[in-house]
Design a protein around this nucleic acid. Sequence first.
DNA 1: AAAACAACTTGATCCAGGTTAAGCAATGCT
DNA 2: AGCATTGCTTAACCTGGATCAAGTTGTTTT
Lengths: 189, 189
Amino acid sequence: MHTHLIERFTEKISLTPAEQERLSDCFKLRHVRKKKSIVQEGEVCRILIFVNKGSFRSYTIDEKGVEHVLQIALENHWVSDLYSFITRKPGQVHIEALEDSEVLVLSYEDLQGLYQEIPVIERYFRLLYERAYVALQLRLNETLSVPAEERYRELVANQPGIAQRVALIHIASYLGITPESLSRIRKHM
Amino acid sequence: MHTHLIERFTEKISLTPAEQERLSDCFKLRHVRKKKSIVQEGEVCRILIFVNKGSFRSYTIDEKGVEHVLQIALENHWVSDLYSFITRKPGQVHIEALEDSEVLVLSYEDLQGLYQEIPVIERYFRLLYERAYVALQLRLNETLSVPAEERYRELVANQPGIAQRVALIHIASYLGITPESLSRIRKHM
DNA sequence: AAAACAACTTGATCCAGGTTAAGCAATGCT
DNA sequence: AGCATTGCTTAACCTGGATCAAGTTGTTTT
């Protein structure tokens, strides 16, 4: 039983012990070494990933070969290539461990089964996506209206774990600036 | 019966005629004149808005008084201040009609009732938010990696209705550039 | 421990898009 | 009709962050 994971669910929805068992059984534990990928561009992403220990980044590579970090996921966060996951088509996203990590993996098929058997799971993910959408809209809005230095300050304030544990190059990409600019911003602070 | 609206639901989920009736009854028809607001900053946004006719923009105003367009919603799209809607706290978003418009409005309370009475409604919104999240992530990614001119080209290609019907100043804000820049881009094309 | 590589910093120069300021055309108001 | 406002364009100049190019420091690998 993945107690820690199940608590994340029971914070939001009620589940009987039998349902908790059933849910927990759908998740498979996997270890991912630093710099190893768990999702690759060009493949259909068939899993949702819950980060138990460690950290990941999801990123795309543009036609010039430049990487763009979409998400940095520490413990207790979900990460996936949602476009590929929901469309069942090959995606453009890579997902790579930033540290030696441990994840709980839920497959597309198992999730569809859960939606049928335990309909309240639908609510859990409805709430999850709702919040994710709001957070992403805020990030987009800030990207368009707030200069990079202030966005970095906010990242340090709101997500100190990211600022401490993640390499500058990935944070810079996540903020949409170059590593050189972020280095200068740090110096300036 | 709001037939057109109900079809949007039955494209994604199955509903009995009685459920369709119940769902349809939760929506109230409202007319909004051009430039009139339906949601204002500082208030709790208690509604989800389905655009039946016309168009809307949602936007915030930053500390310098500059407006930032978050979303442009034409017919068949949903618009709201989702942050305020889900947290029940006052929001920062304004939502304003860009043309004389007609909307179907669903209140927070009615939606919670629907989630209880017709659980498959939960699925509809789970799917809606899933897709909205993916679309927003793509937009953020392009904002950070693609120059403004190409983003405008893509907007014209993918959302011709917006390019034709919406004022340049709002499209520019949506793209995160000034009206002057967008004017130059148009000239250049 | 040496060599190789990865992460970060620093400096010089460049450029997309911002800012400021005018002007014009179309629409609305009295 | 006449005046004000809104929407769009153009032009001159400015700037935040990019790009290019060298370092420096730290960490693996052999």
